[in-house]
Design a binder for these strands. Sequence first.
DNA 1: CTGAAAGCGCTTACAG
DNA 2: CTGAAAGCGCTTACAG
Lengths: 368, 368
Amino acid sequence: MTSGLRVDTVRKEKALKNKVAPDQGGNITIHDVARHAGVSSMTVSRVINQNVNVREPLRERVLASIKALNYSINVAAQSTRAGVGGVRIGILYSHPSASYLNEIMLGGLEHASKLGAQLILEKCGGLQSQKNAVNRLVEAGVDGVILPPPLCDSEPTVQMLKRAGISVLALATARPLPDVSAVRIDDFQGALALTRHLVHLGHRRIGFIKGDPSHTPTDVRYKGFLAGLLEAGLPLAEDLVLQGQFTYKSGLEVGRDLLDRDDRPTAIFASNDDMAAAVLAVAHGMGISIPDELSVCGFDDTPVATTVWPQLTTVHQPIVAMGRSAVGTIHDKIRELKQGEDSRPTHQLMKFMLMHRGSTGPAPDKRL
Amino acid sequence: MTSGLRVDTVRKEKALKNKVAPDQGGNITIHDVARHAGVSSMTVSRVINQNVNVREPLRERVLASIKALNYSINVAAQSTRAGVGGVRIGILYSHPSASYLNEIMLGGLEHASKLGAQLILEKCGGLQSQKNAVNRLVEAGVDGVILPPPLCDSEPTVQMLKRAGISVLALATARPLPDVSAVRIDDFQGALALTRHLVHLGHRRIGFIKGDPSHTPTDVRYKGFLAGLLEAGLPLAEDLVLQGQFTYKSGLEVGRDLLDRDDRPTAIFASNDDMAAAVLAVAHGMGISIPDELSVCGFDDTPVATTVWPQLTTVHQPIVAMGRSAVGTIHDKIRELKQGEDSRPTHQLMKFMLMHRGSTGPAPDKRL
DNA sequence: CTGAAAGCGCTTACAG
DNA sequence: CTGAAAGCGCTTACAG
C-alpha cells in the first residue's frame, strides 16, 4: 500500500517535469491549467465548455493559463463521460463511386475525430438493402445519420430513420424538407451566377445539359439557368436544352448532339463537372478550340474540374466543409436531445463560389 | 451521502435495464461481458487485446459473451489510459490537389478513429515551409508521421522527422528506404502486368508516356514496361517513348504527338490515369475510335479512370486500404516504442489489381 | 458563481 | 494464468 503510494508520487513528479518540457506537447491536463490559474479543475472545465457561470476575471485568468501552457483538451477523455460522449453518427450512402462522397467523408471524419464522435459508414443499394442498412445502423447504436445525395432526397429512408428515433441530416439536397435538418448550397443562385457569367461574356446562344431527373438539384439548377436568361431578356431556345444523366457518358452523347449542328451554341452549361468534362472531350475531338470558339462550364468543382484542360469554370460547392458542418450540426442535435432539450431542425446554407477558369471566355463574335 | 448512494443505485438499475433493450446498442461495457461470462473485467480486457495469457476455455467463454451481448469496445475510454492512448499521427502532404490524397486520408482517418488515435493533417510547400510544417507537427506532439507522395521520397523531410525522434512511414513510394517503414504496391510488377495485357491483345507498337521524373514510380513503371517488351521479344521503339509530367495537360500534348503520326501506335501506356484520360480526349477529337483503333491504359485507378468513357484499363492501387494500413502500421510502431520495445521498420507490399475495362481491346490487325 | 467528490469504460501495474 | 485496486482526463450532479 505504502509502496504503491510512493510509486505514484514518483510517477506524478516525473509527469510534472515532462509537462514543463516543450517537446512533450499534448500532455498538459485540465488540472495543470487549474493549478497554474489558481482555480479548481471544474472552473477550467466550465471555461472550456463556454459555460456562462464563470466570472469574467476568473475566465480571463484561466484563458491566459490555457494559452501559457499551450493546453488542448483530450477529446478521448471528454468522450468517456456518459451521456456526453459516445455520440455515434452514421453516414449512409448509395453511390460510392461519386467523387464528392470521398470529400464529404473526409470532412466528416476529420471533424468527428475532433469532436470525439464515432463515425460509422454504411453502404446500401436498392430499397430492401436500405432497410438492412438502416437496421445495421440501429444495431450499431447510432444517434444520428447523415444522408449524402441521392439518399438525401429519399422519403422512405428518411422515414425509416425517424421512426427508429434517429436524427437525420440531408446533405447537399436542393429541396430541404422543413422537418429534416439540412446542409446545402443554393443551387438556384449558383446556376444563376454561372448564367450571368456567360451572358456577361456576350453569349446569346447557350446550350444547357440537364442532370439526372431523380436528383433534386437537377431541376433547381435548370430553374436558375432560366432565371438568368429571363433576367438578360434572352429567349429560351428549347432545342438547346438536352437531358443528361450527370454521367460522363451522357455528356459525351449530348455534347456531340449539341456541337454537331450548323448553328451550334457558343456556350454550353452542363449541370455538373463530369458532363462538362465530356463536352470538352467532344470539342477537342471536333477541333473546336476552347474557349475561343466555345465556352463550357460545369457545376460542383469536383476534382475533374481541375484535372481537365482547360480547367473548368464551375460553381464551387465547399464539399469538405459541408461534410464537416454536417457532422457538427448533427452532433449538436444529438447532444441537445441527450440532454433532454428538444431540438428543431437546422437548415444551413453554405456559400458557393463561382470559379472562373480557362474553359469560358468572350463569345466568338465579341472577340477582337 | 446516503441519498447520493440511493440515486446511484437507481441509475445503475436503469442502465442495466437499458442494456437489455436491443435498441440501446453500444452501451454494453466490459463489465457486462465479464458478468455474463463469469470472469473478471481484466480477463475480458485481455481477450480483447489478444493477450496470450488467457486459458482457452476462458477465452472462448468470453468470446461467446461478447458475441451474445453484441459488445464493442469503447475506443474513447481505451484511449484515455496514458501511454496507450494519446497516439498522435501526422500526415504531411505537399500536393493537396492530387486525387489520391483524399483517399489516403479517408482510409487513414477511418482507421485512426477505430484505433482511437488522433490524426493531424499538415500541409507544406517548399523546403523552408517543410521545416515549419515539421516544427508544427513536433509542437502538436505527434509520435509518427505518414508521408504520401511525393514527400515520401524527400530525404530532407525524412531526416528532419527522424532527428526529432518521430517515426516515419513512406506511403506509395517506389523506392523504399531500408530504415524507413513503407506501405506500397509493386510498381514494377504492375507495369509488367499491364504490358503483358497489351501484348496478349496482339499489340506490337506500344507508345509509352513517362511520368514526372522526380517521382520514384516514374522510372520503376517504365522499367516494368521494358521488361514486358523484353519478355515478349518486342523491340523498344524509342520514338514511341515520350516524357510526360503526370498531368492531364502533359498527356494532351504528348498524346497528340503520338497520335499525329502515320505509323501511330496501336496502344498507348500512360504512366498514370490523368495522362491516359487526356490521350482519350485527344483520340476522341481526332475521331479515333477506342478501343477498336487504339487501346489506352493508365495506372493507379483514381476516380478519373471510371469517370471517362470508355472507362480506363489500369492498375488498381488500393489507396484507401493503403491509407488504413499506413495508420495501422505506424500506430503499432508507436505503441512498441512507447512500451520500450525497439521497433524495426516494416515494409508492407499491398496487392495491386489489373482492371481490364473498355479502353483496351485487341490490336486492330488482330480483329475479325 | 465556485469547488470537492464520484464516476465514465478501460488498462497498467501489482499480487496471488 | 487470473483478479482487485488505482488511475487515465474529463464532467455530472451535489453542496456551498
